[in-house]
Computed example of a mutant assay.
Amino acid sequence: MTKMTTKRTILSLSLVSILALSSCLKEHDTNVSTEDFSPTFVSLVFPRGNSTVNSGPQYFNSAGLQYSADAATAVETFLIKVGGAGEFNSDITATVGVDATKIADNTDGVVYELLPDSTYEITSTSVVLPAKERTAEGTITFHPNKIDPTHTYVLPVVIKDAGGTTIASNINTIYFRVALKNRYDGVYSLRMRLEEWTAYGISTGVSGPFPKAIELTTNLANTVTHFNTNFNTELQPGFTGTPGVITGSTQFGAASPEYIFDNATNKLIDVKNTIADDGRGRTFKLNPAVTDSRFDPTDKIIYAAYMMTQTGRPNLLIYDTLTYTGSR
């Protein structure tokens, strides 16, 4: 397994950003007044690119992270920030930790579990904010290759103590939601050949490029589902035409392929239909006449030979070559 390390770069923040964050505070018995900028308080925020994501339940969706499932480590940086117009004349030490009760703040309707403590370390549990400084950085290290992709996890991180300094209660929680991408996940160009359905207006005997990209999306650690950007559906793509001639592109209803790989060998070991039978009996299965369907990790190409069944028709033989063009 290839070990990968992800490092996010944190950009400096202007006083304008700090004042903007202060203006997001709501009246609360543990918050400073939104009308008075003279008090000085600390908050916890998650920088992303050129902007700063506030914390609190209204920003639950803002700290979603995606990593390769093969990555050994992924490091994220958070900030302890000074709010208000004043400043501290001495160092402030902020103690940072996990607050499992914050899972209840969820606003997106998904049932989350607390991220297991074996899959991360808060490498900066105590962050020192130097006197007269307005920001200080802390880090958290995730271990994606130890995370079970079949679960939906969240890690709520808060300032637990700031040595008596006021903590802004509604800018004090980052909800780290870790999603994994397996090695097959990505955007691909598709070259395809179909056989055996000439009688139904489907091109046979010739391969050609599909007009738009296919997106393969991680489902489990070794499976990806199929998204057809030409029609913006998850349906199996195809070509219309006659023997040796492609006249257009099409898709097959009630048929959405999920590729299942053996992670140890990168072989494609099964293809399943993720859509329930609508009465036509459409299923997918590997083509037994082709024994080398696989993912080539060097060139990032998937070679897939499989078939779609339908009651009363011969099997539609599908020969796909999917070439990786980038991440989703």
Rank of each mutant, 00 (worst) to 15 (best):
P257L: 05
N273G: 11
S249H: 13
G248C: 04
T218W: 08
N172L: 07
G244E: 06
I246R: 06
T204P: 09
N170L: 00
T274A: 14
G201R: 06
A255W: 08
T265L: 03
T247Y: 06
A255S: 15
R177I: 11
F231D: 06
G238C: 07
V187W: 03
T198C: 09
A213Q: 15
A213C: 02
G186R: 05
S169G: 06
Y175G: 04
I260K: 12
G186V: 04
G244T: 02
F231G: 00
Y175V: 04
S203W: 04
V206D: 07
M192F: 00
F231Q: 04
V224K: 13
Y188C: 03
I269K: 14
Y200F: 13
T218N: 09
A255I: 10
G238M: 08
W197L: 06
G205I: 08
G163F: 03
G244W: 05
S256C: 08
N228T: 12
N222A: 11
N230K: 10
S189Q: 14
N230G: 09
W197S: 05
V245Y: 07
G186D: 07
Y188H: 02
L268H: 04
I174N: 11
F261H: 09
T204Q: 12
P243V: 06
V224T: 13
G208Y: 05
F231S: 02
G248K: 06
A213V: 05
E215Q: 12
T229E: 11
S256A: 15
K160W: 01
V178R: 04
G186H: 09
G186T: 07
T217V: 13
P209W: 07
A254D: 14
F210W: 04
D185H: 15
Y200P: 00
V224A: 12
G241P: 07
G205Y: 06
T223I: 11
A179N: 15
G186K: 04
T233F: 00
E196C: 07
D270Y: 01
T166L: 10
S189D: 14
T265F: 00
I174W: 03
G253S: 12
R193E: 11
S249F: 13
K181F: 11
Y188I: 05
G208R: 06
N170W: 03
F227G: 01
A254K: 08
N228Q: 12
E196S: 15
Y184Q: 08
N273M: 11
K267D: 10
T240V: 08
K160A: 04
E215Y: 13
F176D: 01
N263A: 10
T223P: 09
I174G: 03
V206T: 15
T223A: 15
L190H: 01
G238R: 03
D270S: 13
K272C: 03
R183Y: 09
I275R: 09
E196H: 14
I202W: 10
W197Q: 02
N228F: 10
A168F: 01
A221L: 14
G186L: 06
T165V: 15
L268K: 04
I269V: 15
S169P: 02
A168M: 09
T217W: 11
G248M: 08
I174V: 15
